[in-house]
Computed example of a mutant assay.
Amino acid sequence: MKAIAQDSYGSPVVLKLMNIDRPTAGDDDVLVQVHAAGLDQGAIHLMTGMPYLMRLGFGFRAPKGRVRGRELAGRVDAVGKNVTRFKPGDEVFGIGEGSFAEYARAEEGKLAPKPSSITMEQAAAVAVSALAALQAVRDAGRVRPGQRVLIIGAGGGVGTFAVQVAKAFGAHVTGLCSTAKVDLVLSIGADDVIDYTSEDFANGKSRYDVILDIAGNRSLSHLRRALAPHGTLVLCGGEGGGRWLGGMGRTLRAIMLSPFVSQRLRGLLTNERGQDIQRLGELIETGDITPVIDRTFPLSETPAAMRYLTAGHARGKVVIVI
C-alpha cells in the first residue's frame, strides 16, 4: 500500500511516499481503508522529534512508528475476532495508527460510526482536535452555562471546535485570533472576537471565568491578568518553550503554582476515550459542532500540508485525502 513514512526526525523533507506492507487487524482491532486523515500538531511533533522529552516514548534516534497520522475516516476493511461493534463496509471515524496511508489499524474503542451529515474529509478532522476541545471545555475547564470563556487560538484546528463546544455548553464565548480569522470565528458562533494584532486581551477591560489557551505562547502572568479571581486557566497548547520540554515546561509551572493562588491553573492531557468520540459524533449530528476545513492535500503532498500547518495560518483543519 502507499503511505507517508519517515525513517528519521526532521523537517517535512523526511516524509516520503513509499510502498509498504498493509497492516493487519489484531483480535481487538479494526482495519480501516482510509479515505481521509486529519493533520494536528501532534503529527508535527512526531515528525520533528521535538520536544526531546517525547522521544522517551516514541523513539530516541528515530520514530518507532514510521507512518504518521492518527485522525482518520474511512470504511472498515476487516475486523479482529473480538470486535463486535463494526463489520466490513461500515463507515467510521476516529483515531488510528499511521493514517497517512491507504490502510490503518485502529482499536475498536477509538472508532465511532461516521455521522451521516458530514463528508469523509470533515469526519477525518474530528477525533484528535475535537476530543481535546471537548475535554478542555467539559473536564478541565468545567464550563457552565452563562460563564464568560476566552478561547486563545480560536481560529485553528482545536480552537474552532472549542468555540462550538463551549457554545453548546451555554457559555458566552470570546475568541482570540488574527485579523484573517475574525470572520470565521464569528461564523461558528463566538459572541465576541478579539484581534490580537490590535488589542491586548489582558488590558483590564474584561475578566473571564475560563480561559482556554490553545496557542500556547503566552506567559502565565499575562494570562492570569485576564482571568477572574477564582477563574480557571486551561493550558491546551504545548508550543514553544525550548527543545527539551517545549510547552510542557509552562504547564508544569502552572500546576505547581495553582495550590498557592485563588485561580485554578490546569494542563490538558487528552484521554482517548471511545465514549467521547461517540459523543462528538452526536454533537455533529445535532448540529452543535461542524468541522471547519481550511485545505485538503492529496497523500503525495503531505510534506506541503505539514509546511502549511507549521506556518500557523490554517483556518480550522488541514486534511489529507487518500
Results as ranks from 00 to 15, higher is better:
9 Y>L: 03
9 Y>N: 01
14 V>T: 02
14 V>H: 02
17 L>E: 10
20 I>R: 14
31 L>D: 09
36 A>T: 03
38 G>I: 02
39 L>A: 02
42 G>H: 12
42 G>K: 08
45 H>E: 14
46 L>A: 09
46 L>R: 14
58 F>P: 02
59 G>R: 09
62 A>W: 11
64 K>H: 10
65 G>A: 13
65 G>M: 09
68 R>G: 03
82 N>C: 12
82 N>T: 11
91 E>S: 10
91 E>D: 11
96 G>S: 00
98 G>R: 00
98 G>H: 01
100 F>W: 15
104 A>E: 14
104 A>D: 14
105 R>P: 05
107 E>R: 15
111 L>G: 10
111 L>D: 10
117 S>F: 00
119 T>P: 00
124 A>M: 03
128 V>L: 11
135 Q>R: 02
136 A>N: 12
141 G>D: 01
142 R>A: 14
143 V>A: 07
146 G>T: 11
150 L>R: 09
151 I>F: 04
152 I>S: 08
157 G>K: 02
157 G>M: 01
159 G>N: 01
162 A>M: 12
164 Q>F: 00
168 A>L: 06
171 A>V: 07
172 H>A: 04
180 A>V: 07
186 L>V: 00
192 D>H: 14
194 I>N: 05
200 D>R: 09
205 K>L: 11
206 S>N: 11
207 R>W: 05
215 A>H: 14
222 H>Y: 10
227 L>F: 10
229 P>A: 01
231 G>Y: 12
232 T>F: 01
235 L>T: 12
243 R>K: 14
244 W>Y: 10
248 M>D: 07
250 R>L: 15
257 L>C: 12
260 F>A: 12
265 L>F: 10
268 L>T: 03
270 T>L: 14
274 G>Q: 05
275 Q>D: 15
281 G>T: 05
285 E>K: 03
290 T>Y: 00
299 L>T: 13
302 T>I: 06
317 K>Q: 12
319 V>T: 01
320 I>G: 13
